[in-house]
Write a protein that binds this DNA or RNA. Structure first.
Lengths: 136, 136, 136, 136
DNA sequence: GTGGTCTAGACCACG
DNA sequence: GTGGTCTAGACCACC
């Protein structure tokens, strides 16, 4: 449940926080019933203003991902994992679709895109397929 | 040389204009020496404030993609096509890499990503394989 | 003398406790001279922090509704029933008046309000008309 | 489209703003497509901090009641009137139901409640029934 | 300590 | 001028 924030990016900080927490719930990094870091703690860790964290938490609450019991912090909702996994799929599908649409719209051949995709995927993946059991 | 801008998106409008014009140059949709639409004309077409278009044009000029011919507006530079094609590759590689990194960082299996990629690619491609030559 | 509190509502918890105890006194659910639950007991029953209960009790004492008998806890004052009945009338009149004022202020016709009122009243009343005298 | 806010009430200021604007839309006081007062203007009129107004507007936007086109302020959505009328009914029904439930729960007889309701209604209504056409 | 609300004032992109 | 975001710091009710 540790992540970083790109303070200078296009995506608003509060939205980055929302996204990262949803992803953490989706991957099971935080489980239902567990508390998420307090507003002040999270703000300190991300080097960000508490109000910005509070806004992210408020929206997470409105979406039903977390709930609050006055004074005891915020905890992950019971159905949050399922919701976040759904959300995660849509999130990455939309991002991928956006890139593909733009690329195809300017006539990049799909063969070239596929090649690019595979090259990048190889670069980014840890590649621990062929050394199973060899990691001595 | 027609494109749309997303007035309510995260990417600033002037940047969207810059990107779309570079892409138009890269695909050959506008050629070296050709004029690009005047600030006013472009602003009208995009339903955008002229100041915003002016800012985009100013930056394109600074990057050497277009140059001004006193009185006759802005024209595409001779080496712009080459520059823009290079830029386009980097542009899409970076966008694609960003999505992949984020997806892999939250433990989406690369197999699932590949499947998603191929599904989307099929959806988005025009599939004009079977009517080759018939599009008169 | 059992009631519930809404931990996440707009009305402060300590105020809810005050209100509910006054209502209990008004209805005769607790009588003059009777003890009210100890701070700890009440806090346990309401799933609330003892400090919050203590604050409510303190204010009830200041209003003269209850008094402390060294060691034996708090007991209902002699004139509390009368006071609370007066208070109860004002309490509900004020709440009802507030709703009506707001509704009329935004041009809801009084006929519609009357209808709504009667429908709700029918829904909420126990309807034990037909078993008069059978409730032994 | 003028209203007041109770700075010392239990209902948060930003929520009062949301409520009042929804009511204004429901009554037709502001129509679809019309702009609502700018954040700064509204803040000035209500003697409230612009951020508080901005928060209310943001939530109205999330609920689909208003929409923004960068730089040109916020306007009422096409289906907002219908949504707000629905919402208004629920809003007053819930408030009325809450009072009735509490009153019946502490054994106030429904006859007394009805009487109280009618008395209050008469007090609050303008009573321009009998002078129709006489308002010379 | 916790979240929730509010104020005050800044910068940005856009019209 | 507009909304949108962010910072800084305050007070409140509750634990």
């Amino acid at each position: 449940m540790f992540f970083e924030i790109d303070i200078n990016g296009l995506v608003p900080v509060y939205e980055q926080i929302i996204i990262q927490i949803k992803l953490a719930i989706a991957t099971g990094s935080i489980r239902a019933g567990e508390r998420i870091p307090s507003v002040r703690e999270q703000a300190r860790r991300l080097a960000v203003n508490p109000n910005t964290v509070a806004r992210a938490y408020r929206e997470l609450q409105q979406e039903g991902m977390v709930y609050s019991n006055r004074g005891t912090g915020l905890a992950v909702a019971d159905d949050a994992a399922a919701l976040c996994q759904q959300w995660r799929l849509k999130y990455f599908r939309d991002r991928l679709a956006s890139v593909l649409e733009d690329a195809l719209a300017c006539q990049l051949p799909s063969s070239e895109l596929t090649e690019l995709f595979q090259t990048l995927l190889e670069q980014k993946t840890p590649h621990n397929d062929h050394n199973k059991g060899e990691t001595k």
